[in-house]
Amino acid sequence: MAWKSPAIDGKTADWDGEELRRLFDQRLAERGTVWASGVWRYKELIAPELPMESLVTRGEGNTGLYPLEAAARYAGVRRIWMKAQSENPSGSFKDNGMAAAVSHGLSIGRRVFACSSTGNTSASLAMYAAWCGGTAYVFAPARHVAAAKLLQTAAFGGKLVRFEGTYDDGITFLERHAEELGLYVCNSVNPYRIEGQKSIVFEIAQNLGWQMPDWIVVPGGALSNVSALGKGLEELLACGLIDRIPRIALVQAEGASPFHRMVERGDERLVPEPKPYTRASALNIGNPPSWPKALHALQVTKGVTVAVCDGEIMEAKDVRS
């Protein structure tokens, strides 16, 4: 499936930073309108070309930014904030991108949506498809998938297709057959997913009075999030909304870390992990589709990567605020 690039690409220099800052700050007071969305508040920088009548929202975004003193002590740094994306309607950051992807699908007359998923994407897509009266087909591996997320998907009316294989096999199937099956794909190969997820870093900037932290640390599975953060930071700087770009630290699970290995070795191309495994099921992706964009994000932000074992993930997970 081919997508036309979002209209924002290459046009950020046309915007006046002070004007955008006033507009975005004004929209913070909105309640019960599309502008109350933590995605569509920034429509001018996400999808200015989409007609208002196609915009779908479940009140996504507007997630808390919390100081974590215990986590800062654990990490040995002065201060840490957590952007609590679990406060999104379906429980993950996927809602920021899915609002934009489904809205674009509606704008071109599509009502049947699809994704390959290890959990979070499936729940998010099923929720938005149900909200707009559409249908969601979710291709989910038969193993190593978060059962609670699949129950959530089913509760929203998503049609589950279980298969032997990995998330990557599901992506390959959709790339080959979505068009003939009439499916609008909402994985991160869809550029509107990346555009919507930029709103996460837009919110961080606005929450901090447009003064950025030194680092942004983000987990990496399919790598859509780090790709979106990098692109969003570039655009904030180009618009004059921020005066510097923070560095990004991308964290992968050792059992599913082909991108980290590529960066560490200085390779030019990613070598997929054919049998990824980690207890962090959302990271259990061996051939992340967004790796070229993620690499660009690291280059722009002078970022770094690291891989951690499941034991380290579980230990850090036990650290409270």
Rank of each mutant, 00 (worst) to 15 (best):
L283I: 09
A154H: 02
E264T: 11
L223H: 03
A282F: 09
R162I: 01
K159Y: 07
G91R: 00
M52P: 04
S5I: 09
R21Q: 07
V263M: 11
V77L: 09
L250M: 15
D243V: 08
N207S: 14
T278F: 13
Y192V: 08
P292V: 02
P219E: 03
I8T: 14
G38Q: 15
N287D: 12
R110G: 07
S321D: 15
S290T: 03
A282T: 09
S92A: 07
G105H: 06
T172Y: 02
E60N: 07
G196K: 12
S199C: 10
G105L: 07
E175D: 07
K293W: 01
L250H: 05
S224F: 00
R78Y: 09
G170S: 05
A7M: 15
P6C: 12
T121P: 00
C309M: 03
M52K: 15
Y42G: 11
S321N: 11
P274G: 06
V217Q: 02
R244Y: 10
P48W: 10
T118Y: 03
K231S: 10
N207F: 14
A256M: 12
P48L: 12
E18H: 08
E30P: 08
A147I: 04
P246K: 04
E164G: 13
G209S: 06
M262F: 03
E180S: 14
G105C: 10
G105Q: 11
I242S: 06
F163Y: 14
I46E: 12
S224V: 04
V39Y: 14
A136Y: 01
T57L: 14
G10N: 09
Y167V: 03
V304G: 02
E315C: 05
E19Q: 10
Y42M: 14
Q152A: 01
F139K: 04
A307L: 13
A70Y: 09
A142P: 01
G157E: 06
N207M: 12
A222G: 12
G286Y: 13
N190S: 08
F93G: 03
A294D: 02
E179M: 04
L125D: 02
V34N: 09
A2T: 07
G133V: 11
S224N: 05
N120A: 01
I200Y: 05
V226H: 00
L150Q: 01
A126C: 00
P51A: 13
G266H: 07
A72N: 06
E179V: 11
K302W: 05
L28E: 15
R193P: 07
A100T: 15
V189D: 06
A142L: 11
R247H: 03
A228V: 03
R73E: 12
A36Y: 06
M314D: 15
R110S: 08
S107L: 12
G286K: 10
N284I: 11
L237W: 08
V271K: 13
V263N: 02
E268S: 05
V271A: 10
G158F: 01
A114N: 09
T57P: 04
A316Q: 06
L174A: 04
S321M: 11
L236F: 12
D310I: 10
K11H: 13
F173I: 01
V112F: 09
R261P: 05
V138Y: 00
D169P: 08
G38D: 14
E195M: 15
P89V: 04
N225H: 03
A154P: 01
